[in-house]
Amino acid sequence: MSSSYGDINVSGGIGLDSESAPFNLELARRNSMIERQGMKLPRYLKTGTTICGVVYANGVVLGADTRSTNGDTVADKNCEKIHYIAPNIYCCGAGTAADTEATTNMVASALNMHRYGTNGRTSRVITALTMLKSHLFKYQGNVSAALVLGGFDINGPHLFTVYPHGSSDSLPYATMGSGSLAAMSIFEAGYKENMTKEEAMKLVADAIKSGVFNDLGSGSNVDLCIITKEGKEYLRNYECPNPRPYASQSFSFAKGTTPVLRSTMLTLKDVVVEEGADAMEVGA
């Protein structure tokens, strides 16, 4: 696995290379000391999420809500949870936001490098799956990413779920995140084999909406991504069932409302003053 050209690690910054230590733990001892002295640990951004996917007649549909939370506070009302892995593979992420983002980015760049080394052949979904689960297993569940991986390759459509500890399932329909039960109830009631694209899109959108309205950790809009042999269709904000219910009041403050003690124009640092330049020609 360890393949380095000069000082550039081909397997990607924080990844896949089992010999090097990918995370810097310098501050861990200091942090546990100040925590013992009573400092409260700041909370990580989580995506208390509803994500799901379904296989239909000739492709896969992935879906996600768009709420990101920090404790009980909604940190982002319209975040993106369907991550790019390869042109034919996408991945929904639930759990700690930084972990899902970093893990999927790492696999995306590793697969990109892999395509360079294999004459640009289309990446396979199981390759992405294996990279994801071996990374997650290595960290024993501490990298908390729960994923729904979907794609279309030489072997047809694929859908997998990956758990934070590194186990995975291959399923015709799958849900993950805190809204997984709400979404699964819609799938269990409405799933059929060999659905059309429209049926599959409606089923996934209904499953996400079930999470949005019944799970507190999920909310806002529905994102969809459809992957077929022909390519992908990323439908960002496919449905927006939660528009702002009150009109913007359009508050405006009169100039000079805010009490100012000092006001200065800062000197720009990037402006080059050319000394001794020719004087500008004026007139003829």
């Binding site: 310098e26 501050l27 942090n31 930084a98 990037d270």
Partner: peptide
């Protein structure tokens, strides 16, 4: 040249995630 805001944001994100299990306490 100067960094674009997006480039700088990605740099900051990487510098923080590098310390995933022993983070800087700063947002």
């Amino acid at each position: 040249r100067n960094m674009k805001p997006t480039t700088f944001a990605n740099l900051v994100s990487h510098m923080l995630y590098e310390r995933r299990f022993g983070p800087y306490y700063a947002e």
